[in-house]
Simulated scan of single mutants.
Amino acid sequence: MTDLDGGANPALAALGAAGIEFTVTRHGRVSSLAEAAAARGIDPAALLKTIVVRRADDDFLFVLVPGDRTISWPKLRELLGVSRLSMPDAGTAREVTGYERGTITPFGALHAWPVIADARVTGRVVSIGAGAHGVAATVDGDDLVRALAATVADVTEPA
Rank of each mutant, 00 (worst) to 15 (best):
M1P: 14
M1W: 05
L4G: 12
D5G: 13
G7V: 10
N9F: 01
A11Y: 03
A13K: 08
L15I: 03
L15M: 09
A17N: 08
A18F: 00
A18V: 03
G19T: 08
E21W: 08
T23P: 02
V24C: 12
R26H: 08
R26V: 09
V30Q: 15
V30E: 13
S32K: 08
L33K: 06
A34W: 00
A34Y: 01
A34Q: 15
A37N: 06
A37K: 07
R40W: 10
I42Y: 07
D43Y: 08
P44L: 11
P44W: 01
A45Q: 15
A46Y: 00
A46F: 01
L47A: 12
T50S: 15
I51A: 11
V53R: 03
R54I: 04
R54C: 08
D58M: 06
F62G: 00
V63W: 03
V65N: 05
V65F: 03
V65G: 05
P66N: 06
G67S: 07
T70N: 04
E78P: 03
E78T: 15
L79A: 05
L79F: 10
L80E: 12
L80P: 10
G81W: 02
R84F: 01
L85V: 02
L85R: 06
L85K: 08
S86I: 02
S86G: 15
S86Q: 04
T92V: 13
A93S: 11
E95D: 12
E95R: 12
T97G: 07
T97Q: 06
G98M: 08
E100N: 13
G102E: 04
G102R: 11
P106V: 07
F107S: 02
G108N: 04
G108E: 06
A109T: 06
A109D: 01
L110G: 12
A112M: 05
P114V: 03
A119D: 14
R120V: 05
R120S: 14
V121A: 01
V121W: 02
T122V: 14
T122S: 13
T122H: 05
G123Q: 09
S127F: 00
I128K: 03
G129P: 11
G131D: 07
G131P: 05
V135K: 04
A136F: 09
A136P: 00
A136H: 15
A137H: 09
V139W: 01
D140P: 11
G141F: 03
D143R: 13
R146P: 01
R146F: 05
L148K: 04
V152P: 00
A153W: 00
D154H: 12
V155H: 01
T156C: 13
P158V: 10
A159C: 11
